[in-house]
Amino acid sequence: MWVLMLPALVPVALFSVGPLLYGIGLAFTDARNARDHETSFVGLENLVQLLADDDFWSSFRIGMIWGVSVTVLQFLAALGLALLLNQDLRLRNVARVLAVVPWAMPPVVIGLMWKLVYHPDAGILNGLLGTDVNWLADFSLALPAIIVVGVWTGMPQTTVVLLAGLQGIPRELYEAGEVDGACRWRRFWSITLPQLRPVIVAITSLDFVWNVNQFGLVYVLTQGGPGGRTRLPMLFAYEEAFRYRYAGYASMLGLAMAVVVLAVLGLCLWRQMRETAR
């Protein structure tokens, strides 16, 4: 039996599990990207250093602000859009296709496109508002500016998943609600939301993981600037590994982020399972 699974397992082990274990191993060494460097095992030294690193904590805070606000805003906007697209509108199918378009774009292209939107001299945004703001270089505006882009980027898949969820809700429930005299709001609150709940939990936790691990988009937009105000944890790890060449330290950072994300996810899923079990 295991022989039959081998062709599928070998690539997984070779290209996924292997590098993962290697990365975890690196986190406990003083590995550097240097030719003459002798790597040695240092135990938890990287972790100790990480916990005392102010730059890490500010990056972590930015990462959490980014992850939570993008996920929440994305969810609210996507829910609205999904409810709209679930109505019996004219040209509904065209609208559904249009809503998915951003999904087809690679993050780097989205980044370049929004960079043009935010451009201080030639940007559409300054043109529309008649302002003269350098959005991506302003210390207090840069983070909100990229959050908007993050929400825009992630909306399509959230919308599609929520829409699928909406269509799975049996019509009879709404009919029964109407018969009982429930108003629109009441029907939404007591039928739609509870029925969507598993879908919402699943897509929101997935979105959170994706957003916290976002890299390409922000790298293109700001490279973590100005003055580190948009330096998400993954950008921080990238800089540590490929700019300052502390590969071991960067691996520990990646590992710590993975643990945090897994903890958040675990909490959500555990609560969900407990609810369904009851």
Partner: peptide, 15 residues
């Protein structure tokens, strides 16, 4: 120097 420049000096001088 490179790390000093990007983590410390650039934000401080900009401010």
């Amino acid at each position: 120097f490179d790390e000093w420049k990007s983590k410390v000096a650039t934000p401080v001088l900009q401010e």
